[in-house]
């Protein structure tokens, strides 16, 4: 049985803040994005998840969805089956198999892999994967400067033409003090040693990506697009180049400059973007990363172009800029 992504949806909040706002307010900005997405006061990861899912499910009979998996590093409740909110909002059948992944930015690809497995346990042909994230920290934390917000959703199908899943390879290991959050806290912490974080990122992601290529008997040059996890402006592109990828393979999957760090969404958001220009026969590799640390690299091959309900560039263009003061109000910091 083949399993494919047959549809995808993206949601970006309407509000944006430019990096220049940080520079004029604070005199510096520790993140290298041009601008980033900002949650409105009445948005959270669940509202974004619903909107992205509605786009992905357009034209699909929702009664045939048998699996829902949802991922975020920051669900609004620490304990609650939040897939239920999606089931009600989307009008899905109440007997869908659900799974919820959290606690790390690697949870996005985890939820996709879980949905692929759970498809075997349902008679229904479709699974919905929703990844929605908006990392949070206080305005005095350097990491926060880059934190954006986004959601993406995918419909997976059994034996239908689309973006065919080919395989996965993972890496895990101990990496202490990098981007973590203690129980009961909303703010993310980090020991703030960038070189240490970069070494871990490079080692973990490279391990997953090269492991996957070896497992499938491919070279990285066989992939039209290579999309790596983007927690900052440079690491993903630098690592991809170090591994021998060309600008052509990397550039379309880069979303960080427009959204900031979208946590668990990162590489999956890049996947949605490259799918718009991908042609039949193209192979795509994505790799997530979660501090602590872990990485999962997934390989796909495009059998039939995935239909576009909403054009990614249009979603990027629908926006209103806010000032740094308004941004602090949105975050309820003032």
């Amino acid at each position: 049985m083949t399993k494919s992504i047959i549809s995808c949806g993206v949601y970006l909040p309407y509000l944006r803040i430019k990096r220049d706002e940080y520079l004029s307010a604070l005199g510096r900005c520790s993140a290298g994005m041009r601008e980033k997405t900002v949650l409105d006061i009445d948005e959270d990861v669940i509202t974004m998840a619903v909107e992205a899912s509605r786009v992905a499910l357009a034209g699909i009979d929702v009664s045939r969805v048998g699996v829902v998996t949802v991922a975020s590093t920051g669900f609004p409740y620490q304990e609650k089956a939040q897939a239920g909110t999606l089931v009600e909002a989307l009008g899905l059948e109440k007997n869908v198999l659900t799974a919820q992944h959290s606690n790390s930015t690697v949870s996005g690809t985890e939820s996709l892999l879980t949905a692929l497995s759970l498809l075997d346990q349902t008679e229904q042909p479709y699974a919905l994967v929703v990844v929605s994230d908006a990392p949070v920290s206080g305005p005095d934390v350097d990491l926060e400067h880059g934190f954006g917000a986004a959601a993406c959703a995918f419909v997976l199908a059994k034996d239908e033409p689309g973006l065919v899943f080919e395989g996965v390879y993972a890496q895990s290991g101990e990496a202490m003090g990098l981007r973590y959050r203690l129980p009961g806290e909303t703010d993310i912490r980090d020991i703030g040693v960038k070189t240490f974080a970069m070494l871990d990122y490079n080692e973990t992601v490279k391990g997953a990506v090269t492991g996957l290529a070896n497992k499938l008997g491919r070279n990285l040059t066989d992939y039209r697009h290579v999309v790596l996890h983007q927690a900052d402006a440079k690491s993903a592109t630098a690592l991809a180049k170090k591994m021998g990828c060309t600008d052509e393979q990397i550039k379309e999957g880069v979303v960080y400059p427009y959204t900031g760090d979208t946590g668990a969404c990162s590489s999956l958001l890049g996947l949605c973007r490259v799918l718009e220009s991908a042609c039949a026969g193209d192979c795509i590799l994505i790799s997530s990363h979660g501090s602590g640390s872990g990485s999962q690299a997934l390989s796909f091959c495009l059998e039939t172009p995935v239909p576009k309900s909403v054009v990614f560039e249009a979603v990027l263009g629908y926006k209103r800029y806010i000032s740094y003061i308004q941004y602090l109000k949105q975050k309820r910091s003032i």
Binding site: D40, D42, E43, D44, I46, T47, E51, R54, P76, Y77
Partner: peptide, 12 residues
């Protein structure tokens, strides 16, 4: 669109 309307008793 789907949004938070308000929060009361800690329930969204």
């Amino acid at each position: 669109v789907f949004r938070k309307i308000y929060e009361e008793e800690g329930v969204i």
